[in-house]
Simulated scan of single mutants.
Amino acid sequence: MPVSIPFENPSATAVDVLAVARQVLYEEAAALHDVATALASTPDFANCVQAILQLKGRVVVTGIGKSAHVAGKIVATLNSTGTPALFMHAADAIHGDLGMIQPEDFVIAISKSGDTPEIKVLVPLLRRKGVPLAALVSNADSYLGQQATYILHAPVTKEACPNNLAPTTSTTAALALGDALAVCLLESRQFTAADFARLHPGGTLGKRLYLKVGDLSRQNQRPQVLEDAPLKEVLLEISGKRLGATAVLDATGQLAGIITDGDLRRMLGSFSDLERLTARDILTPRPATIDIEDFAAEALARMQQRNITQLVVTQDGAFNGFIHLHDLLREGLV
Protein backbone atom coordinates (compact mmCIF):
# COMPACT_ATOMS: atom_id res chain seq x y z
CA MET A 1 0.00 0.00 0.00
CA PRO A 2 1.20 3.57 -0.66
CA VAL A 3 2.86 5.20 2.31
CA SER A 4 1.68 8.74 2.95
CA ILE A 5 2.89 11.36 5.40
CA PRO A 6 0.22 13.44 7.15
CA PHE A 7 0.88 17.14 7.61
CA GLU A 8 -0.13 19.38 10.48
CA ASN A 9 -1.17 21.99 7.95
CA PRO A 10 -4.81 21.06 7.11
CA SER A 11 -4.52 22.66 3.68
CA ALA A 12 -1.54 20.49 2.73
CA THR A 13 -1.92 17.25 0.78
CA ALA A 14 -0.65 13.88 2.02
CA VAL A 15 2.15 12.59 -0.20
CA ASP A 16 2.74 9.08 -1.49
CA VAL A 17 6.39 9.23 -0.52
CA LEU A 18 7.41 5.95 -2.15
CA ALA A 19 5.95 7.01 -5.47
CA VAL A 20 7.70 10.39 -5.25
CA ALA A 21 10.99 8.76 -4.28
CA ARG A 22 10.83 6.32 -7.19
CA GLN A 23 10.02 9.13 -9.60
CA VAL A 24 13.04 11.14 -8.42
CA LEU A 25 15.33 8.16 -8.85
CA TYR A 26 13.92 7.32 -12.30
CA GLU A 27 14.35 10.92 -13.46
CA GLU A 28 17.90 11.15 -12.19
CA ALA A 29 18.80 7.77 -13.68
CA ALA A 30 17.45 8.94 -17.04
CA ALA A 31 19.53 12.10 -16.77
CA LEU A 32 22.68 10.06 -16.14
CA HIS A 33 21.90 8.07 -19.28
CA ASP A 34 21.73 11.35 -21.21
CA VAL A 35 25.07 12.45 -19.76
CA ALA A 36 26.67 9.16 -20.80
CA THR A 37 25.23 9.53 -24.31
CA ALA A 38 26.51 13.10 -24.58
CA LEU A 39 30.09 11.94 -24.01
CA ALA A 40 30.09 10.36 -27.49
CA SER A 41 29.38 13.67 -29.23
CA THR A 42 32.56 15.48 -28.22
CA PRO A 43 36.23 14.56 -27.73
CA ASP A 44 36.54 17.08 -24.91
CA PHE A 45 36.15 14.58 -22.07
CA ALA A 46 38.93 12.31 -23.33
CA ASN A 47 41.14 15.32 -24.12
CA CYS A 48 40.54 16.66 -20.62
CA VAL A 49 41.64 13.34 -19.11
CA GLN A 50 44.84 13.39 -21.18
CA ALA A 51 45.56 16.99 -20.19
CA ILE A 52 45.23 16.18 -16.49
CA LEU A 53 47.42 13.09 -16.85
CA GLN A 54 50.20 15.29 -18.25
CA LEU A 55 49.67 17.92 -15.58
CA LYS A 56 52.60 18.96 -13.41
CA GLY A 57 50.42 20.99 -11.06
CA ARG A 58 47.08 20.33 -9.37
CA VAL A 59 43.46 20.20 -10.38
CA VAL A 60 41.57 23.13 -8.84
CA VAL A 61 37.80 22.60 -8.79
CA THR A 62 35.50 25.57 -8.22
CA GLY A 63 31.80 26.35 -8.06
CA ILE A 64 29.14 28.40 -6.31
CA GLY A 65 26.13 27.28 -4.26
CA LYS A 66 25.30 23.58 -4.59
CA SER A 67 27.94 23.28 -7.30
CA ALA A 68 30.52 24.21 -4.67
CA HIS A 69 29.47 21.19 -2.59
CA VAL A 70 29.80 18.96 -5.66
CA ALA A 71 33.22 20.49 -6.33
CA GLY A 72 34.35 19.62 -2.81
CA LYS A 73 33.33 16.00 -3.24
CA ILE A 74 35.08 15.73 -6.62
CA VAL A 75 38.24 17.16 -5.07
CA ALA A 76 38.09 14.55 -2.30
CA THR A 77 37.65 11.75 -4.84
CA LEU A 78 40.52 12.99 -7.01
CA ASN A 79 42.88 13.29 -4.05
CA SER A 80 42.02 9.81 -2.80
CA THR A 81 42.64 8.23 -6.19
CA GLY A 82 46.01 9.74 -7.02
CA THR A 83 45.22 13.10 -8.63
CA PRO A 84 46.28 16.08 -6.46
CA ALA A 85 43.37 18.51 -6.24
CA LEU A 86 42.21 21.64 -4.41
CA PHE A 87 38.80 23.20 -3.82
CA MET A 88 38.34 26.91 -4.47
CA HIS A 89 34.99 28.57 -3.80
CA ALA A 90 34.08 30.75 -6.76
CA ALA A 91 32.96 33.64 -4.54
CA ASP A 92 36.10 33.53 -2.39
CA ALA A 93 38.31 33.35 -5.47
CA ILE A 94 37.72 37.00 -6.29
CA HIS A 95 38.52 37.98 -2.70
CA GLY A 96 41.99 36.49 -2.49
CA ASP A 97 41.70 32.73 -2.96
CA LEU A 98 42.64 33.09 -6.61
CA GLY A 99 46.20 33.15 -5.31
CA MET A 100 46.10 29.39 -4.75
CA ILE A 101 46.17 28.79 -8.51
CA GLN A 102 49.67 28.26 -9.88
CA PRO A 103 50.78 28.43 -13.56
CA GLU A 104 50.95 24.63 -13.93
CA ASP A 105 47.48 23.99 -12.47
CA PHE A 106 44.26 22.98 -14.21
CA VAL A 107 40.86 24.44 -13.28
CA ILE A 108 37.45 22.76 -13.46
CA ALA A 109 34.52 25.17 -13.00
CA ILE A 110 31.13 23.64 -12.18
CA SER A 111 27.94 25.51 -13.01
CA LYS A 112 24.60 24.26 -14.28
CA SER A 113 23.77 27.44 -16.20
CA GLY A 114 27.32 28.57 -16.84
CA ASP A 115 26.07 32.15 -16.56
CA THR A 116 26.11 32.94 -12.84
CA PRO A 117 27.56 36.37 -11.90
CA GLU A 118 30.41 34.87 -9.88
CA ILE A 119 31.45 32.66 -12.79
CA LYS A 120 31.36 35.61 -15.20
CA VAL A 121 33.69 37.54 -12.92
CA LEU A 122 35.97 34.58 -12.28
CA VAL A 123 36.54 33.29 -15.83
CA PRO A 124 38.41 36.37 -17.18
CA LEU A 125 40.68 36.25 -14.15
CA LEU A 126 41.45 32.60 -14.83
CA ARG A 127 42.18 33.37 -18.47
CA ARG A 128 44.70 35.98 -17.40
CA LYS A 129 46.52 33.32 -15.41
CA GLY A 130 46.76 31.21 -18.56
CA VAL A 131 45.63 27.97 -16.92
CA PRO A 132 43.52 25.40 -18.82
CA LEU A 133 39.84 25.64 -17.93
CA ALA A 134 37.29 22.82 -18.09
CA ALA A 135 33.62 23.72 -17.80
CA LEU A 136 31.39 21.12 -16.17
CA VAL A 137 28.08 22.58 -17.33
CA SER A 138 24.58 21.64 -18.36
CA ASN A 139 24.39 24.44 -20.92
CA ALA A 140 27.34 24.04 -23.28
CA ASP A 141 26.46 27.29 -25.06
CA SER A 142 26.70 29.34 -21.87
CA TYR A 143 29.32 31.98 -21.13
CA LEU A 144 31.39 29.45 -19.21
CA GLY A 145 31.07 26.85 -21.97
CA GLN A 146 32.19 29.32 -24.62
CA GLN A 147 35.21 30.48 -22.62
CA ALA A 148 36.42 27.04 -21.52
CA THR A 149 39.23 25.00 -23.05
CA TYR A 150 37.26 21.79 -22.47
CA ILE A 151 33.54 21.19 -22.01
CA LEU A 152 32.44 18.39 -19.67
CA HIS A 153 28.83 18.32 -20.75
CA ALA A 154 26.22 17.25 -18.19
CA PRO A 155 22.94 17.98 -20.01
CA VAL A 156 19.93 18.24 -17.71
CA THR A 157 16.58 19.40 -19.05
CA LYS A 158 14.67 19.28 -15.77
CA GLU A 159 15.36 19.06 -12.06
CA ALA A 160 13.71 16.31 -10.03
CA CYS A 161 12.25 19.08 -7.90
CA PRO A 162 8.59 19.46 -9.01
CA ASN A 163 9.11 23.21 -9.22
CA ASN A 164 12.20 22.67 -11.37
CA LEU A 165 14.12 24.90 -8.98
CA ALA A 166 16.09 22.99 -6.32
CA PRO A 167 19.35 21.59 -7.72
CA THR A 168 18.75 17.84 -7.69
CA THR A 169 19.18 16.12 -11.04
CA SER A 170 21.79 18.67 -12.12
CA THR A 171 23.98 18.09 -9.06
CA THR A 172 23.64 14.32 -9.44
CA ALA A 173 24.75 14.57 -13.07
CA ALA A 174 27.71 16.80 -12.21
CA LEU A 175 28.75 14.52 -9.37
CA ALA A 176 28.54 11.42 -11.56
CA LEU A 177 30.55 13.04 -14.35
CA GLY A 178 33.18 14.00 -11.78
CA ASP A 179 33.29 10.38 -10.62
CA ALA A 180 33.72 9.26 -14.23
CA LEU A 181 36.63 11.65 -14.63
CA ALA A 182 38.29 10.42 -11.43
CA VAL A 183 37.92 6.75 -12.38
CA CYS A 184 39.31 7.36 -15.88
CA LEU A 185 42.34 9.03 -14.31
CA LEU A 186 42.65 6.21 -11.77
CA GLU A 187 42.66 3.52 -14.43
CA SER A 188 44.99 5.47 -16.70
CA ARG A 189 47.47 5.79 -13.85
CA GLN A 190 47.06 2.07 -13.03
CA PHE A 191 46.22 3.12 -9.49
CA THR A 192 46.10 -0.05 -7.38
CA ALA A 193 44.52 -1.09 -4.09
CA ALA A 194 47.96 -0.76 -2.51
CA ASP A 195 48.17 2.84 -3.75
CA PHE A 196 44.69 3.46 -2.34
CA ALA A 197 45.75 2.05 1.01
CA ARG A 198 48.69 4.44 1.26
CA LEU A 199 46.27 7.37 0.92
CA HIS A 200 43.69 5.89 3.33
CA PRO A 201 45.64 4.73 6.38
CA GLY A 202 42.86 5.63 8.79
CA GLY A 203 39.48 4.06 9.40
CA THR A 204 38.14 0.62 8.56
CA LEU A 205 38.75 1.01 4.84
CA GLY A 206 42.42 1.75 5.33
CA LYS A 207 42.88 -1.08 7.80
CA ARG A 208 41.38 -3.56 5.36
CA LEU A 209 43.92 -2.48 2.78
CA TYR A 210 47.11 -2.30 4.83
CA LEU A 211 46.74 -4.09 8.19
CA LYS A 212 48.67 -7.39 8.16
CA VAL A 213 48.05 -10.51 10.22
CA GLY A 214 51.42 -10.08 11.92
CA ASP A 215 50.47 -6.58 13.10
CA LEU A 216 47.82 -8.19 15.29
CA SER A 217 49.17 -11.66 16.08
CA ARG A 218 52.44 -10.39 17.53
CA GLN A 219 50.41 -8.72 20.30
CA ASN A 220 49.05 -12.11 21.40
CA GLN A 221 50.67 -14.82 23.46
CA ARG A 222 51.67 -18.03 21.64
CA PRO A 223 50.02 -21.02 23.32
CA GLN A 224 51.80 -24.24 22.34
CA VAL A 225 52.35 -27.74 23.70
CA LEU A 226 54.16 -30.83 22.45
CA GLU A 227 52.25 -33.86 21.19
CA ASP A 228 53.01 -35.89 24.32
CA ALA A 229 51.88 -33.13 26.71
CA PRO A 230 49.35 -34.45 29.31
CA LEU A 231 45.80 -33.16 29.41
CA LYS A 232 46.47 -30.98 32.46
CA GLU A 233 49.26 -29.13 30.64
CA VAL A 234 46.96 -28.59 27.64
CA LEU A 235 44.23 -27.17 29.89
CA LEU A 236 46.65 -24.81 31.64
CA GLU A 237 48.11 -23.59 28.35
CA ILE A 238 44.71 -22.81 26.85
CA SER A 239 43.31 -21.13 29.95
CA GLY A 240 46.54 -19.26 30.73
CA LYS A 241 47.07 -17.79 27.26
CA ARG A 242 43.37 -16.88 26.86
CA LEU A 243 43.02 -17.44 23.12
CA GLY A 244 40.67 -20.41 23.31
CA ALA A 245 43.19 -22.76 21.69
CA THR A 246 46.74 -24.03 21.66
CA ALA A 247 49.00 -25.19 18.89
CA VAL A 248 50.40 -28.71 19.12
CA LEU A 249 53.97 -29.16 17.90
CA ASP A 250 55.82 -32.38 17.09
CA ALA A 251 59.28 -33.27 18.36
CA THR A 252 60.90 -31.24 15.56
CA GLY A 253 58.89 -28.11 16.37
CA GLN A 254 56.61 -28.40 13.34
CA LEU A 255 52.88 -27.78 13.61
CA ALA A 256 51.06 -31.06 14.21
CA GLY A 257 47.61 -29.69 14.95
CA ILE A 258 45.47 -27.53 17.19
CA ILE A 259 43.36 -28.08 20.30
CA THR A 260 40.50 -25.68 20.99
CA ASP A 261 38.04 -25.22 23.87
CA GLY A 262 35.51 -27.05 21.73
CA ASP A 263 37.85 -30.02 21.30
CA LEU A 264 38.17 -30.26 25.08
CA ARG A 265 34.40 -30.25 25.59
CA ARG A 266 33.92 -32.96 22.95
CA MET A 267 36.75 -34.99 24.51
CA LEU A 268 34.92 -35.19 27.84
CA GLY A 269 32.15 -37.16 26.19
CA SER A 270 34.44 -39.45 24.22
CA PHE A 271 37.06 -40.64 26.72
CA SER A 272 36.60 -42.29 30.10
CA ASP A 273 40.25 -42.41 31.21
CA LEU A 274 41.28 -38.76 31.15
CA GLU A 275 44.49 -39.35 33.13
CA ARG A 276 46.18 -41.09 30.20
CA LEU A 277 45.23 -38.55 27.54
CA THR A 278 47.89 -36.51 25.75
CA ALA A 279 47.67 -33.69 23.25
CA ARG A 280 48.22 -36.21 20.44
CA ASP A 281 44.96 -37.97 21.34
CA ILE A 282 42.69 -34.95 21.03
CA LEU A 283 44.34 -32.60 18.53
CA THR A 284 42.79 -31.62 15.22
CA PRO A 285 45.36 -32.14 12.46
CA ARG A 286 45.86 -29.76 9.52
CA PRO A 287 44.29 -26.72 11.22
CA ALA A 288 43.34 -23.58 9.33
CA THR A 289 46.38 -21.34 9.01
CA ILE A 290 47.29 -17.95 7.63
CA ASP A 291 50.68 -16.42 6.89
CA ILE A 292 52.00 -13.54 8.96
CA GLU A 293 52.24 -11.36 5.81
CA ASP A 294 48.62 -11.87 4.72
CA PHE A 295 46.11 -9.08 5.21
CA ALA A 296 44.02 -9.13 8.38
CA ALA A 297 40.92 -8.81 6.18
CA GLU A 298 41.83 -12.17 4.63
CA ALA A 299 41.99 -13.69 8.12
CA LEU A 300 38.46 -12.46 8.75
CA ALA A 301 37.26 -13.96 5.48
CA ARG A 302 38.76 -17.37 6.35
CA MET A 303 37.24 -17.33 9.83
CA GLN A 304 33.82 -16.51 8.42
CA GLN A 305 34.14 -19.18 5.75
CA ARG A 306 35.03 -21.89 8.28
CA ASN A 307 32.85 -20.52 11.10
CA ILE A 308 35.79 -20.42 13.53
CA THR A 309 37.16 -17.77 15.88
CA GLN A 310 40.93 -18.18 15.54
CA LEU A 311 43.58 -19.06 12.99
CA VAL A 312 47.05 -20.44 13.47
CA VAL A 313 49.58 -17.92 12.17
CA THR A 314 52.62 -19.22 10.32
CA GLN A 315 55.84 -17.71 9.04
CA ASP A 316 57.71 -19.58 6.33
CA GLY A 317 55.51 -22.57 7.14
CA ALA A 318 56.41 -22.65 10.84
CA PHE A 319 54.15 -21.91 13.79
CA ASN A 320 54.27 -18.21 14.73
CA GLY A 321 51.19 -17.61 16.89
CA PHE A 322 47.44 -16.99 16.69
CA ILE A 323 45.08 -14.36 15.39
CA HIS A 324 41.67 -14.26 17.06
CA LEU A 325 38.33 -12.84 15.99
CA HIS A 326 38.55 -10.46 18.94
CA ASP A 327 41.67 -8.92 17.38
CA LEU A 328 39.67 -8.10 14.25
CA LEU A 329 36.73 -6.80 16.28
CA ARG A 330 39.05 -4.51 18.24
CA GLU A 331 40.34 -3.01 14.96
CA GLY A 332 36.81 -2.47 13.64
CA LEU A 333 37.20 -4.92 10.75
CA VAL A 334 34.05 -6.83 11.70
Score class of each variant (00 low, 15 high):
Q315A: 06
I101D: 05
Q102K: 14
I259Y: 05
F106I: 00
A68P: 11
F191I: 04
Q254T: 14
P132R: 01
T252V: 09
V3H: 07
V17T: 11
L32S: 10
L177D: 07
E27V: 03
L199N: 07
K66M: 12
T83V: 09
L243N: 06
F271W: 12
E237C: 13
L185N: 06
Q310I: 01
E227D: 07
G63H: 10
D97W: 02
T77G: 10
P167F: 11
R242E: 13
A36P: 04
I64A: 13
G321T: 08
Y210D: 00
A299S: 07
N79F: 01
T278I: 06
A148F: 01
E298T: 14
V183F: 12
A154C: 14
G178P: 03
V156D: 03
V20Y: 02
R265C: 02
L18K: 06
I282W: 07
L325G: 08
I282D: 04
P230E: 10
T314H: 00
E28I: 09
H33N: 05
P162E: 03
T83S: 11
R222K: 15
G253H: 11
L98T: 05
Q254K: 14
S41R: 14
C48E: 01
A140S: 15
I52H: 02
T169K: 07
G269K: 05
R286S: 13
Q219S: 13
T77K: 12
V107L: 03
A109D: 00
N220P: 05
A51F: 05
Q254L: 13
K232C: 03
G130E: 08
G65E: 12
Y150K: 02
H95L: 10
A197F: 03
D92H: 09
A148K: 02
P6N: 07
L177C: 04
S4W: 06
V59K: 05
G253S: 11
Q304M: 08
K73Y: 07
A296M: 00
D215T: 01
R208Q: 15
R265I: 07
L205R: 09
A29V: 10
A182P: 02
V123H: 00
H89A: 12
A245L: 12
E159L: 12
L328H: 02
Q221L: 14
I110T: 01
F45A: 03
N307R: 15
I108A: 04
A297Y: 10
V312Y: 00
